[in-house]
Amino acid sequence: MNAPFLHIDRPAADRVAHPGSGTATIALIVPVHNEEGAIAPFLKAVCESIDPLQEHGVTFDLIFVNDGSSDATLERLIEARQADPRIRVIDLSRNFGKEAAMTAGLDSCDADAAIPIDVDLQDPPHVIPLLVEKWREGFEVVLAKRANRSSDSFLKQRSASTFYRVHNWIAQQKIPHDVGDFRLIDRQVIEALRSLPERRRFMKGLFAWVGFRTATVEYVRDRRIAGQSKFSGWRLWNFALEGITSFSTAPLEIWTYVGATISALSFLYGLLIVAKTMIFGADVPGYASLLVSVLFLGGIQLLGIGIIGQYLGRVYAEIKQRPIYIVRRKYEGMN
């Protein structure tokens, strides 16, 4: 039987990472999918930000996870690795999605802390020293919060704001507004995330669920330097559904009350018809009102079945116990 709680602690000899003194290694976790044009600018900007930190005892690994790219992304990463031994490349067997790619990077991370970061430089590397500074103060999680979303379109700004509000209204586990995957997480947080067995992973929710002492730094999100966003409107909608169904059963519970309310109104309407018939005599109901009622109730039923299907689909995916990702090859060490 599994323990009802999880205790994660490092041996005393390993606790040298985030106190103010001592050396530490931090891994940048960089999922990439068809980003060949962004690799070189990203590495240039990152090195300008992290190299000065070596004077303060902080070294970095760069773990790139190639998430089934069909362009020359893998070739560019291998070339970069030959020039910089800090770079490690995990090549997945196909495109598993960003959440799975990030999980693969965290699973391969053996550093004292990790920073998931996008390769398109919308997560600016110059924020990394600020994250490290807060970590050195003793925080196990340091969030990078967008001060504004001016780089996003109006529609994306409104949809993101709506998602955060709806999610935090119905979910027990709240997620911070305007905070993406860009953050620093301590080794203990990494181990806690590794212990979570679920296959359908909503990383923003999982980051919030594990908890730990948290600080926040703000930054202004830049525009993408190369390529195109892989998140279309449809994918963002499905991503939002994933987040809501991962951390809340409120849609199921709400539909219980919707059904009960419709049943109560139907019963009251039935009593009204009986009373009207007894007082005024028989009345022939209209065809239009009958048709509207049938279509309305049919739509309500289909919507309820769809909500149940969302949760049933998650259960189906979990019970199959398939791996979250499959690694085709790792480029690290001397290979």
Results as ranks from 00 to 15, higher is better:
P4H: 06
R10D: 12
P11D: 14
A27I: 04
E36V: 10
A38Y: 03
P41S: 06
L43D: 05
V46M: 10
C47L: 15
S49P: 01
E55I: 09
H56Y: 14
G57Y: 01
N66A: 08
A72G: 12
R76M: 13
Q82F: 12
A83C: 08
D84W: 01
R88S: 08
L92N: 04
F96K: 04
K98V: 15
T103K: 14
D110E: 12
P116D: 05
I117V: 03
V119A: 03
P125M: 03
V127P: 00
E137K: 03
E137P: 01
A147N: 05
D152E: 14
T162K: 08
T162E: 09
T162W: 09
K174H: 15
I175Q: 04
P176T: 07
E198G: 14
Y219K: 04
F231R: 09
L236R: 10
F239R: 15
S246T: 06
W255P: 06
A264V: 10
F267K: 15
L268A: 15
L268S: 14
I273L: 15
V274Q: 14
K276G: 13
T277A: 07
I279P: 06
I279Q: 07
L290V: 11
V294S: 08
L295A: 10
F296S: 10
I300H: 13
Q301I: 11
G306A: 10
I307A: 04
I307D: 05
G309M: 08
Q310S: 11
L312G: 12
L312K: 10
Y316R: 15
Y316A: 14
I319W: 13
P323N: 01
I324R: 13
R329H: 09
E332W: 04
